[in-house]
Amino acid sequence: MTAARRRDRGVDPIPWWLIALGALVALYFILPTLIVIPLSFSSASAFEFPPKDFSLRWYENFFTDPVWLTSLGNSFLVAVLAALIATVVGTAAAVGLNRLTGRLAGFLRTLLMISMVTPAIVVAVAVYISFLQWHLTGSLLGYVLAHAALGVPFVLVSVTAALGGFDATLLRASASLGASPLRSFVRVTMPLISRGVITGAVFAFVTSFDEVVIALFLRSPTFQTLPVQMYNSVTFELDPTISASSSLVVVAVTIIFLVPLLIGSRKKTR
């Protein structure tokens, strides 16, 4: 193996400039994420990098200011409910589509995925005007429904991927042993696709938790989410508390994404 690799390197080396360029691009990818955390420990009351002095004052601000805390709570509530709805309807749709073939099924799959490529601003404006008429702006229900719709494609993709390795004869075996379709689903299908469902739910949660554009349009003085408050803090208030909020969100999302990974590796070692 090493001999082959060494020979390979001799005939077909990776040019040094490619490695240098790759490193620069990698830095470009991680630069904003990288600076968010040191920024949050700055003591300066202006946006500046690198920070000159370190303090915890922005964290203190974040956890004592009711505006930030309420926004965080709202975001969490909206994301949990939206992810729940998206996961239930998305999983059902993926299971349904898996049984169907033909042009119509293909069309419906594309239709369910369409929000992934529709510009957020177009959806936001249309949703805003319709929600004004339906009295859903600035309400928990409005946020939850809009974010649930955005989460469906993620659940659909990950559950469909999980169903790809699913053997339908298992269902027939279960039915022949007398199980009802619902029982078959709970006892046979669900355990086999659970990883896909969890992944989809995580993506739906994060999508909602991080969504800004629709949230900006649906906000009201009485109900807004954390990304909206972060938006306010850089546009109107110039409030560095956003640095603490940013680093908390980045760390939280990273941990959330590590959960499916950990479940996966635990299964592997079992």
């Binding site: 630069l31 904003p32 994420t33 600076i35 968010v36 920024l39 946006f47 994060v206 991080d210 969504e211 800004v212 990304p227 972060m230 938006y231 850089v234 956003i242 640095s243 909020s245 940013s246 680093s247 969100v249 980045v250 999302v253 990273t254 994404f257």
Partner: peptide
């Protein structure tokens, strides 16, 4: 998975 607002703030 870097939050939109965190990224833009950075």
């Amino acid at each position: 998975w870097t939050s939109v607002m965190a990224r833009n703030y950075a």
